[in-house]
Design a protein around this nucleic acid. Structure first.
Length: 288
DNA sequence: GCCCAGGGCTATC
DNA sequence: GATAGCCATGGG
């Protein structure tokens, strides 16, 4: 990867193309809910108070890459990690060993980066996701951030974004304050999670420092009221960089019933099972 | 209007 | 441990 500043606050990233890092696939594959597409295909988003505008481009010399509104230090120190660009998926995944459906999904979905998102945001986002569709999840989270997040104006005033409300923000909002945002019955789960973390009844830093295996992290996450196996797997995959976790939602159930005779052995996908899962999820949803 | 959504909790067996 | 209702809400 090569990074250079081309004007103040704007960098050029080369050494990756869309088969490694595809913006639409990465942002629209259902792992994140707060990146918005502009008319020119660029995306704008905010994570941990770092805002980014990123556009996929083909440069005049024929090389492909990205133009990003950020600085080199923030790119190197934050976004490279966020997009897992330090991980070579070709080394994690045994492509030639994939079964037919998994290979089709891989061919269709390659370019997806499994994001390393903020753990707290991921916990709350996927509590909200349960029995909800993706457009609804997005609008609900947007309402939550607009009401209880911090307003941030970025890129010379072009965009007004909102940070994700932190634990104290949710506690200050109170259960009553969470109502009216479209959270439905999940409002209590969210408030309870904030209380559990604030009271140190649940230390999420233990999860992040944890070198324990994925199963133990998933088990631990299910101690939260409102987090079951599926949501715990999503949090492990998108918020804890557990690339082997394998969330099974209603779409994955359809895949398993249709293409795997009702049961799937994920051990054949090895350490990158979650990546395969995400290819499958994206593949089935984009083609239905 | 109707069906459904990146499910989980509770009661009941 | 398995299975059956129930849960709030709004996108399509």
């Amino acid at each position: 990867m090569n990074v250079e500043q081309i004007q103040p606050g704007v960098i050029k990233v080369t050494g990756y193309d869309t088969s490694d890092f595809h913006l639409y696939k990465t942002f629209e594959c259902g792992q994140c809910f707060r990146w918005n597409k502009n008319a020119d295909g660029s995306y704008v988003g905010i994570a941990n108070e770092n805002a980014l505008l990123i556009k996929s481009v083909k440069f005049e010399d024929g090389k492909k890459g990205y133009i990003c509104a950020t600085d080199i230090d923030t790119w190197n120190n934050y976004w490279v990690n966020y997009f897992s660009l330090d991980t070579d998926y070709n080394a994690e995944l045994n492509v030639s060993g994939l079964d037919q459906f998994a290979y089709e999904a891989y061919e269709f979905g390659k370019g997806i980066r499994i994001l390393r998102q903020d753990l707290w945001e991921t916990i709350i986002s996927f509590i909200i996701s349960q029995r909800n569709n993706i457009p609804k999840i997005k609008s609900t989270i947007d309402k939550l951030c607009r009401k209880y997040g911090k307003e941030v104006t970025v890129l010379n005033g072009l965009y007004t974004l909102y940070t994700f409300p932190n634990v104290d923000d949710i506690i200050a909002a109170g259960l009553e304050g969470l109502q009216g945002l479209g959270l439905g019955y999940r409002d209590k789960y969210i408030y309870d999670a904030a209380i559990a973390i604030k009271s140190s009844r649940f230390n999420i830093n233990d999860l992040q420092c944890d070198n324990n295996d994925t199963n133990r992290v998933i088990e631990k996450l299910q101690e939260f009221n409102g987090i079951g196996p599926k949501v715990a797997n999503c949090i492990a995959l998108f918020g804890l960089n557990k690339l082997d976790s394998f969330p099974i939602d209603i779409w994955m159930e359809r895949i398993i019933n249709t293409y795997y005779n009702g049961s799937i052995d994920i051990s054949v996908y090895g350490k990158a099972a979650g990546l395969v899962q995400q290819y499958m999820f994206y593949y089935i949803r984009e083609n239905s």
